[in-house]
Design a protein around this nucleic acid. Structure first.
Lengths: 332, 332
DNA sequence: TTGTAGGCGTTATCAG
DNA sequence: CTGATAACGCCTACAA
């Protein structure tokens, strides 16, 4: 079912068929009509491997994300898909499961696919070998959520945001504020948020708790419930992401605490689901779809001009504190 | 950065380079070593467009899903990804947003990519033009969640499951049981679940409510809260999916009802998040990852033998009622 | 307006 | 064990 079959069926050369698709105005209306008809009748679809080989671009953008099980990334991908479609690009999303090996596999596969550009969320921009690989080929790429001076990034100032949050909670009378995060090593975002926590606590003259690091999502509730049952438990929990915050809500319940009366819980990300929970999840909301859209925009724009993308093109989008219902002044 | 560059660098023919990758034992150990070294040094990655063109397969499976914003599909995709990787296949997921146009676009694009097989969740297998397109090419495909006698499917008997659920609720003393669903036309699953509801109600000698159809996720909570505030409100709500059920939980709260004391809510899907909510979401759980895995297995197996996939190969996996905490006997 | 032909990067066949 | 070469399906000068 190649261009040949169509050409034969219509009784024209393959060049004419090709033109009917790619330069319709260069072919006689009647011929074009017959070509298109034969094409639909035969179910002909131009083979994009052949196209990519011949043209030297694919109109495909690769997307590398940690996981789609976290709605943050699903929402972001939604934004990416929108903006990509609007610009005539397809996307090929790949998932790393927060593994370095996954990042390498994804990037390599995407390179093999001859994607025109790449949008990625990596675990550590600083040390990522994949990024140098992209640079070496001067393949346009942009990082999402990650923040690093040497790479083009679209992100939110999460360190600052977390600092502000601590100030806000302190202002509400909280002094025993603990932070919960996933595996710190797997995400520079978590690290930045943690830094913001530490800094914020210091600025407020409060003692920072040891970070509560919960590597595996499954054991997390019991682990947290135990923490909340201990003496000198915190009066507020800030979480490095919303999914974790939701688990904290559950853990509080398991530990016999009522949110927000006995415990304030604040997440980070602003996933849509959080707005429909009870209590409505308080969170530092990032514009996830917008992050995706702007990432695509940058790439498309770089593709339009020459090559590569300047780190100076990085964007810091603004976050927003969603008050929610899981947040209240400290009991006095 | 093609095979030529590597060949040149090493001083061998491109054939040898190709062999070093595809038939390592047909090339002298020393030569192979040099080739591989040059390859990594130059950052050479075999171009899969060229490979796909030359071989007549791509080792890629296309995946067509309604959305990734619903964790059901994200979890399923996770299973697909696992099993695909285990069998040496890549996947290219595409999203339709529950639109027919989206299904067509996705299928066409995947065909253009020369995927070896396709795994899809469509809105209506009965009338889908895309499926006949696949059949016409005898491209192996399998439907997930959909159920239809003429197509190979991996699914759960959701009509039966919903019927059982009604019986169970009736057994708990509920008689005013209403059903909530998204846009019915967009999903044969919802239709089947609704049929199960109607049948179940009839069997139990109960009056079925008019279906509460909430097309748009955003207005859903207020819409539902209003419904729950009306006279002769139901004592139990069964939902066509978990995401909706979560909104029902919220709506109940907004309407001043306490779950499960004043209202029982049961979802459908068994998304993982439901287990960490308060109240823990009662639901008819489907083995989402397993559905994905088995779908891939069927395709791979079909690919192994000749072609196509017999509808008789369809699998009905078993569901499981998760009791949760959002479910209680009717107040008497 | 249409046709011819070269080549995109690979693999596989056939010689050597 | 290695090399030369013909496709794979398509696009695009260049001719006609």
């Amino acid at each position: 079912m190649s261009i040949r079959d169509v050409a034969e069926q219509v009784g024209v050369s393959i060049a004419t068929v090709s033109r009917a698709f790619n330069a319709p105005d260069q072919v006689a209306p009647e011929t074009r009509r017959r070509v298109m008809q034969a094409a639909t009748q035969l179910g002909y679809v131009p083979n994009s491997s052949a196209q990519t080989l011949r043209r030297q671009f694919s109109k495909v953008l690769g997307v590398v994300l940690p996981t789609l099980l976290n709605p943050v990334f699903a929402e972001c991908l939604d934004g990416i898909a929108q903006m990509a479609a609007a610009n005539g690009y397809s996307i090929v999303p790949m998932t790393t499961d927060y593994q370095l090996a996954g990042e390498e596999a994804a990037v390599n596969r995407l390179l093999a696919y001859s994607v025109d550009g790449m949008i990625l969320v990596v675990s550590n921009p600083q040390t990522s070998q994949e990024l140098v690989k992209l640079q070496a080929r001067s393949l346009p790429y942009v990082l999402l959520y990650n923040r690093h001076a040497d790479h083009p990034c679209v992100s939110v100032d999460c360190e600052g945001a977390m600092g502000q949050l601590i100030h806000r909670l302190a202002g509400m009378g909280h002094s025993r504020i603990a932070m919960v995060s996933g595996q710190l090593a797997a995400s520079d975002r978590s690290q930045q948020r943690y830094r913001g926590y530490v800094t914020g606590m210091r600025e407020c003259g409060l003692d920072a708790y040891d970070l509560v690091e919960v590597p595996f999502m499954d054991a997390v509730v019991s682990r947290l419930a135990q923490f909340l049952g201990a003496a000198r438990r915190p009066s507020a929990l800030v979480c490095s992401n919303d999914l974790l915050a939701i688990r904290c809500l559950r853990a509080a319940h398991v530990a016999g605490l009522e949110v927000p009366r006995d415990l304030t819980v604040v997440g980070f990300d602003g996933i849509e689901l959080g707005r429909d929970l009870t209590p409505v999840l308080s969170t530092i909301a990032q514009p996830n779809r917008e992050i995706g859209r702007r990432g695509v925009q940058l790439i498309v724009q770089a593709l339009g001009k020459g090559r590569a993308l300047d780190p100076a093109a990085s964007l810091t989008l603004s976050h927003e504190f969603h008050e929610g219902e899981s947040c209240a002044p400290a009991a006095s």
